[in-house]
Design a protein around this nucleic acid. Structure first.
Length: 224
DNA sequence: AAGCGCTCCTGCAGGC
DNA sequence: TGCCTGCAGGAGCGCT
């Protein structure tokens, strides 16, 4: 299950490879991953469009494109769900069993594959507006984080998975951050002491930064 | 408005 | 050996 570091590393990897590439053709092999965008709408808007940039927000990938023969900006939102992958492949290579969307970029195919189809690739980017602060950014304030935790009786682990509280943290890094902070994942969020919250706040940032550093030093050759 | 149960999907492991 | 069951899990939805 890709979380913030994995998505960040993927974004860094794909950004230079996608820039300037034009979508020649689109093959939608699993319509549901586009929801609520229809396949017809998806094809109509994206065919002939050019990739300009790629950013990450939480666990989402935000592809910036420009429509064919116009300056109209297009924002394509991607989420890898649990098992999603995005990679380039030669046009003669057989498609993986669960290739959901295939972009023909001319020399190569750009493939979005997702075994369990929990991910998304859509023109509807409304999900981004609901997201909380980036844990590695300035918006992730300990005071606000603390206030949010104080409002909940749920286990702290559950709260860390809530993307409106802080984005990008999933099952693995939530557990890792809690372990480092010496806090039981089952502890009620509103029972944490100020010292524990501060420690947790730091652990979250640490584990994510370390994972990005670790991953970014390893070449991404899972391009198949 | 927090909290909870349900749904989406497939692959895999365990039981018999 | 092979079938069946249940689990895994991010996020959105609807209900309380």
């Amino acid at each position: 299950m890709p979380e913030l570091p994995e998505v960040e590393i993927l974004a860094r990897h794909l950004r230079p490879l996608l820039r300037g590439k034009i979508i020649r053709e689109i093959y939608v092999r699993r319509e549901k991953v586009l929801r609520p965008t229809s396949p017809a709408q998806f094809r109509k808007i994206l065919r002939g469009a050019k990739f300009l940039g790629l950013t990450r927000r939480g666990k989402y990938l935000l592809f910036e494109l420009r429509a064919k023969n116009s300056r109209t900006p297009i924002s394509l939102l991607g989420h890898l769900g649990m098992t999603g992958r995005m990679f380039f492949a030669g046009k003669k290579e057989p498609l993986p069993k669960h290739a959901a969307v295939v972009f023909d970029l001319g020399a190569k195919n750009f493939i979005y594959e997702d075994t369990r189809y929990f991910g998304r690739l859509t023109l509807d980017n409304s999900a981004v507006a609901k997201l909380g602060p980036e844990p590695l950014g300035k918006d992730f304030e300990p005071v606000k984080f603390s206030e949010n935790l104080k409002r909940s009786r749920q286990p702290v682990k559950v709260k860390l998975l809530d993307q409106s509280l802080v984005v990008g943290v999933g099952n693995i890094y939530a557990s890792e951050a809690l372990f480092r902070a010496g806090i039981s994942p089952r502890r009620a969020a509103n029972k944490l002491t100020a010292a524990q919250i501060k420690k947790l706040w730091r652990s979250i940032r640490e584990v994510l930064m370390e994972a990005i550093d670790c991953g970014s030093t390893i070449p991404l050759n899972f391009s198949a």
